[in-house]
Amino acid sequence: MHAVKPGDTAIELSGVTKQFTTDSGTPYTALRDLDLRVAPGEFCAVVGPTGCGKSTTLTLVSGLERPSAGSVTVHGQRVAGITPGVGFMFQTDAILPWKTVLDNVSAGPRFRGVAKRVALADARDWIRRVGLAGFEDRYPHQLSGGMRKRVALAQNLINEPEILLMDEPFSALDVQTRAKMSGELLSLWDLTRPAVVFVTHDLEEAIALADTVVVLTAGPATTVKARFPIDLPRPRVVQEIRFERRFVDLYHQIWEALRAEVDAAYSQSTSLGEKEAS
């Protein structure tokens, strides 16, 4: 476990540019001169229009991708490969369909060399924490979408990550289940307080969860447009915090910054569609 010092930074992207080569062989700049800092224990939500590079930002922090320019550091160490101490919760389920809930949750500790007896005991504890006690022997296909997301949370949090990357993890859920999962996420996050980068298209979700909301510009060549501190008190009840006057004020402020980027992205996609049709 990294020893946190005053003023420490858990994640820092400095002047990051990321280019890809398209199928036609032409370069595409996804990110340009992007700066982002996340403190230890901070819950940072990232919002922006479709295709603006939000997911790419997560892959750079995790070490799954390398920047074309600039630097990515985790706890002051430059990311040069798969970053240790980082959990990654994807938009689609990443749980193993041939393993039971218990085996899925215990897989991480066992892979790291934890004794089977200890790993299984810890897994049972985390399964209980996410509200799935009694479902240890079920397989993923026997679970609802919300239950599979609980398994994925337990799968990540059992490893006590210092950093948790979340790429629209609840987007496939219905509205009620999504709100319930958001509340459970906050309760579980509060147990170990990892630094979180949570990518979402849902501005209400971002404000309800985060300490900070970062708005990205429309792509290509995405960068940070604005950063908003969320001064809503914790602990929060996600289903109720949305009715607070301060929540509404924050929503209006952030939407003013986000709306122009959403409009720009829509105009770009419309223009591209018209060109392809002509």
Rank of each mutant, 00 (worst) to 15 (best):
T83E: 14
F170Q: 06
I207H: 03
V79L: 04
V199R: 00
R234S: 07
R112W: 09
V105T: 12
H201M: 01
P229F: 08
L96T: 12
D35T: 10
A210Y: 05
H75A: 14
E160Y: 13
R110S: 14
A257E: 13
R37W: 02
R32W: 01
E204D: 15
K18A: 03
E12V: 06
D211V: 04
G219Y: 00
V196K: 00
L203W: 01
D231Q: 11
A152D: 14
A210V: 05
G134P: 03
R148F: 09
D103E: 15
F247D: 11
P40Q: 06
E168Q: 10
Q155A: 12
E184I: 09
V47N: 01
V72K: 07
G108M: 08
A195K: 00
R66M: 14
F135D: 07
L64T: 06
F247Y: 06
V262Q: 06
M181W: 04
L188M: 08
P6V: 10
V151I: 13
R66F: 14
G134W: 05
D125H: 14
L164S: 08
W126D: 05
N104K: 06
A221N: 12
L209M: 11
S144E: 05
V214C: 02
E184L: 15
P235M: 07
Q142R: 11
R128W: 08
R227Y: 03
L64Q: 13
T177E: 04
Q77C: 09
W126S: 05
K180R: 13
R227M: 11
G41S: 05
A80R: 15
E205L: 06
T217N: 03
A226V: 00
A257P: 01
A206M: 02
G183L: 10
S171P: 09
R110G: 12
A133M: 06
R236Y: 04
R124V: 04
A206Y: 00
F170G: 02
H252A: 13
R259L: 11
T17S: 15
D103M: 08
L13R: 02
F111M: 14
P40T: 06
R129L: 12
R227A: 06
V196A: 03
S278T: 11
T26D: 14
I254H: 02
N156K: 09
V72P: 00
F111N: 10
H75E: 12
R245H: 14
V213G: 01
A208C: 07
S144I: 10
A45N: 03
R245P: 13
F88A: 08
V72Y: 03
R117K: 14
G53H: 00
G41M: 03
I11C: 08
D8Q: 14
A133Y: 01
I254N: 03
A172M: 13
G76M: 07
A69D: 12
I241N: 02
F135Y: 13
L96M: 14
V130Q: 03
Y28I: 13
V86E: 02
R66Q: 15
P161I: 09
P84Q: 08
G146F: 06
E205G: 01
F43R: 05
P233G: 02
S106T: 08
E12F: 06
E136C: 04
D23S: 13
E256V: 15
F43E: 03
L185R: 02
A10H: 03
M1S: 15
L96K: 09
A107W: 13
E205T: 06
K225I: 00
L157G: 07
S71I: 05
T222G: 00
V224Y: 01
R246I: 01
L31V: 00
E12D: 10
A195R: 01
G48A: 00
V197W: 00
V197M: 15
D23V: 12
A257K: 01
